[in-house]
Design a binder for these strands. Structure first.
Lengths: 248, 248
DNA sequence: TGACAATTTATACGTACGTTCAGATAGTTT
DNA sequence: AAACTATCTGAACGTACGTATAAATTGTCA
């Protein structure tokens, strides 16, 4: 059994607090082409990190593995990615904007319609993720699986939650608008369950394959099942009147 | 930032293939009391591993941390737990029987009734887990969160899936019996989504807390929301006729 | 062309890891 | 009491880790 060194606590990364991104080279590529050379390397590093983090888990991947997968030397990963915590943030930040834009566009289109329905909101939240997860560029698939890992792990999520929570809040507001009677906390819980279902479809291939007995295709094959499951679950929660139904 | 050495690939654990459990001392405590002394230590080690694995993730916890938390020396962990892969299996196996029995009892009770409903089956699957997750003994809570980590990670799940899949199959058979028209693969997917929702409620406290704005109590507080969400989602899937509904 | 800055290489440092094991300790049996 | 075995200790081994940095390289512009 091989062993490797792995960061234990993402909170105690002193380098992560030295500034927004000014210390990370290659962030603001100038038109003179001076940084273009490094920019390509940087992408290779981030791609490799994305692939490995999603496949093995953040804690199980070493900087050296990333360097090898990217075809660069060890120091280059640090040069372009900073510390390991910074690297994870950078990998996630790189694509979050595209996903958020797709979701925001879809949300706006639904809310601009004549009679926005909860079903449409659930679809608008789920489908962009599912589409990106099945994107032609396999890096998007890796990114989608990486999100699933991060969200399921409080320890990492609190480091990157602010990348995704604002979008979730926009959807919650819209849902509340469509279902004014619904209890806000129940909506939060229901959206969390929706997200968990959505992510599990992309991340937990092994379990589904093991139970069906056959491998199954990509996540898109279960698209309708997922949407139907979440829409009906969410509708059930939202149609209950406000106030605490649960617990003591 | 601290770093530690961590197993990279649970598959390449040569010690895991040396036999069922004959090489692990303390497995078959004799009535003569000879092994009782070690048995207590063994429990402390497994408890500590359970707590740390569930809180930090398997890959992020070192044997040394476990030893320290258990109040034993390094070698004792190896003595009672074997290799790290064996230790994880042992930690999971220790409690799985109790959980499976609770589920099987409840399943039998539902199916023995006059008119078994899908709702009851979903409840019978979910509630035992939720009850154990909120058990007075906090180790059960740790175990519940550890399951969530393992199931979400294909890399680990394929090592321990056989502990949980047979029970899932029993439920799938029962569901098929109650809903003969339902498509089997869709049922599998729906059960997977149910499990993902169930686990997320126990594991992803940070996200719910961040979105509601307040900490919230334990998972039991969201019990009714979870059951309602999953029952309605599952019913929607099961009531669709058999054959592939989803995309190509 | 030569100065300059961005990038890359190669190497090193200190630390922590998983695993192993010879020997000490403490119950049990003879 | 002596032999025996399960349990535990303490230390070591070899490996890998994250990070840092001096020197080499590469492309750009004066």
């Amino acid at each position: 059994m091989r062993d490797t060194a792995v960061m234990r606590d993402p909170d105690t990364d002193s380098r992560a607090d030295t500034g927004p991104s000014d210390d990370t080279p290659g962030d603001c590529p100038r038109p003179d082409g001076r940084l273009l050379r490094g920019e390509a390397t940087r992408e290779r590093v981030l791609d490799a990190a994305e692939r490995l983090f999603s496949a093995e888990g953040v804690d199980a991947v070493s900087i050296r593995q990333i360097a090898a997968a990217a075809g660069v030397t060890l120091g280059v990963v640090g040069f372009h990615g900073g510390s390991k915590t910074e690297l994870i943030r950078t990998v996630l930040s790189r694509r979050v904007e595209a996903l958020n834009i797709a979701r925001r566009d879809r949300l706006a289109r639904v809310m601009a319609g004549p009679a926005p329905k909860l079903d449409d909101l659930v679809e608008a939240y789920i489908l962009p993720y599912l589409e990106y997860a099945s994107h032609d560029d396999p890096q998007w698939g890796a990114y989608a699986r990486l999100i699933a890992r991060i969200v399921a792990d409080d320890r990492w999520y609190k480091n990157v939650g602010e990348l995704y929570d604002p979008m979730a809040r926009e959807y919650l507001d819209a849902m509340q608008q469509v279902c004014p009677e619904a209890d806000r906390d129940a909506l939060v819980t229901a959206l969390t369950l929706t997200v968990a279902s959505m992510l599990s479809l992309v991340a937990s291939r092994a379990r589904i394959a093991g139970l069906t007995g056959h491998a199954g295709g990509n996540a898109m094959d279960h698209r309708d099942t997922l949407v139907s499951f979440c829409v009906n679950g969410m509708t059930a929660i939202a149609s209950r009147k406000g106030g605490p139904q649960d617990g003591p």
